[in-house]
Design a protein around this nucleic acid. Structure first.
Lengths: 175, 175
DNA sequence: AATTTATGTCAGCCATGTTGACATATTTTT
DNA sequence: AAAAATATGTCAACATGGCTGACATAAATT
């Protein structure tokens, strides 16, 4: 029924009484939106989008990963990846090396240019995080990290731990 | 230069030494991805996407908001909004009411059906949050909320505070 | 030798963002 | 009252980045 018969407007606001954690739902929405807006400005100068950012990020984070591994992290199809990967290779940000054991594989590495761009993209995000944590104790930081990690599907947490410097329970003594 | 001359692969992984907070950057990425995946499954049954979700969410969160206000929260163009809004109206999830003072305005309200769907979409997200906060103290929760809020651009924090039940510094005693 | 696997590629579709132009009704200003 | 500004709607065209399906190639495995 798409008629307007029972389309009476509800005038009461949805709010926490329904046992729903609206506060964190919308904080997460706004926080993530602004978090991604920093790199977007830089990417636009190169004609790149967020898809390029994600590829560049993980290639820098785990140099030498294969196309299959990257697809697994990004959870997109190879056809989607192919488009942006081609552009990153053509622009000299990423380079491919034939797999040493299995020569069907293509190991993906950043070039110097790709490393520079990855750092430039991460910098404002890191700055935003540092500012947001400014008044936090290291205990609070741990609580935040634990929360974010617990928000990830358990099966996928392994992907995070597999990245260099992310051994489970490891201490991150930044700033 | 798009040639492969200076395309030497960099084999060292990008890691925290550069003073960059990679840990939280990637936790945020993975956490948000899985956070949004819950509602996506439900939306698919209706032929809706995330764009519909966002509209439905804010219309429920602030019933009676005008088109202009909604555009301001979502930061998209009216043409983008028009498409999804039309579908939500046609499917009887949202209804428009002529503004009482200014009759040019269209106040947007959820219908009963729209409220039901909004709740169904929020439920799994809230469940995920509750599970992630399971072992957290209320102090830690405060730390997490403060962090997320500090991640939002200062100019935009007003939008959050303007939503019902989000007076600055208010206590959220959920669960 | 046959099959499976890793990757690449072509073609087309869909969702959701964009810009620009223009129409309409209503309110505000002059 | 007339003119200008405002809120909204709509048309058309385009870009990005997802998707599916089909097929090609080279290399590894059986």
């Amino acid at each position: 029924m798409a008629d307007s018969a029972n389309a009476k407007p509800i005038r009461t606001a949805l709010s926490g009484e329904d046992g729903i954690d609206l506060a964190i739902i919308e904080l997460f929405f706004f926080a993530y939106r602004d978090f991604t807006s920093d790199p977007d400005l830089i990417l636009a100068k190169y004609g790149f989008g967020r898809a390029h950012h994600r590829v560049l990020y993980f290639v820098n984070r785990k140099p030498g990963l294969t196309v299959a591994e990257l697809l697994d992290v990004l959870k997109i199809t190879k056809q989607s990846l192919a488009r942006v990967l081609k552009q990153l290779i053509d622009s000299g940000h990423v380079t491919q090396v034939q797999g040493p054991r299995d020569r069907r594989q293509r190991e993906l590495y950043p070039t110097a240019r790709g490393r520079t761009l990855a750092l430039a993209l991460a910098r404002p995000q890191s700055r935003r995080i540092r500012a947001a944590l400014e008044s936090s104790t290291s205990t609070e930081r741990e609580g935040i990290e634990r929360f974010l990690k617990a928000m990830v599907n358990p099966e996928l947490r392994a992907q995070i731990d597999n990245l260099p410097g992310n051994m489970p329970g490891e201490d991150h003594g930044k700033q």
